[in-house]
Amino acid sequence: MNLQTKIPLKPNTYNQIDYHSKVLLLGSCFSENIGEKFEYFKFQKLQNPFGILFHPLAIESLITNAINEKEYTKDDIFFHNEQWHCYDSHSKFSNASEIELLQNLNNQIRSTHQFLKEASNVIITLGTAWAYRFIETDEFVANCHKIPQKRFSKELLSVEQITESLEAIMSLVKSINPKVAFIFTVSPVRHIKDGFVDNTQSKSHLIAAIHQVIEPRNHNYYFPSYEIMMDELRDYRFYKEDMLHPNAIAVNYIWERFVQVWISEETKTTMKSVDEIQKGLSHRPFNSQSDAHQTFVKQLEEKKHLLQSNLPHIIF
Rank of each mutant, 00 (worst) to 15 (best):
V180T: 07
T5R: 12
E71I: 14
N252W: 15
S225A: 15
R110W: 12
E232W: 13
N287S: 12
F79G: 07
H245Y: 12
S187C: 12
L25E: 04
N220C: 15
W262M: 05
F316K: 06
Y40M: 10
E36H: 12
T185Q: 03
L126R: 03
S282R: 15
N48Y: 03
Q44A: 14
D75S: 14
M230R: 05
S225T: 13
N287C: 09
E36K: 15
H20A: 08
I7C: 09
Q47Y: 01
L300F: 02
P8Y: 11
D291N: 14
I135T: 12
S97Q: 00
L306V: 10
N33G: 10
F78S: 01
F54G: 07
M170H: 11
N310R: 13
D76R: 01
F182K: 03
S31A: 15
Q16N: 13
P224N: 06
L9H: 01
T295Q: 14
G195N: 05
Q294W: 07
F184K: 03
K240S: 14
E232F: 11
F258M: 03
L25V: 09
Q47F: 06
Y14W: 14
T267S: 10
D88F: 00
D18W: 04
E301N: 13
Y72T: 00
V186T: 11
I207M: 11
N95C: 02
Y40K: 15
F286C: 10
K150C: 09
V251E: 11
P224S: 10
F152M: 08
Q108A: 10
N199Y: 10
M170D: 10
V173G: 04
E136I: 07
N15W: 05
S153K: 11
L46M: 13
S61N: 14
H80D: 09
V141N: 03
W84M: 01
F196E: 14
K42T: 04
G127W: 00
I7T: 06
P11Q: 09
D76S: 05
S187W: 06
I176E: 09
S91E: 07
F93H: 01
I314P: 07
Y222A: 08
S288D: 12
S309A: 10
R190P: 00
I109H: 01
D235I: 14
S89E: 02
C144I: 10
L53R: 07
N310C: 13
E82S: 12
V259R: 09
E256C: 10
L300C: 04
P56D: 08
A129W: 06
F152I: 07
Q260G: 05
H191L: 08
E265L: 09
Q47H: 13
K92L: 06
S273A: 15
K174P: 07
F258T: 00
L24Q: 05
H113T: 06
D75R: 12
N247Y: 10
M1Q: 15
V274M: 04
K179R: 14
Q260T: 11
L166N: 03
S165L: 06
S97T: 00
P216F: 02
I214P: 00
T200L: 13
E160P: 04
K193V: 06
I228D: 01
K74F: 07
F182D: 04
N2D: 15
N104T: 07
P56V: 11
R151S: 11
H145E: 08
H90Y: 03
L157C: 09
K117W: 05
N15K: 15
L206R: 03
S273F: 06
S94A: 11
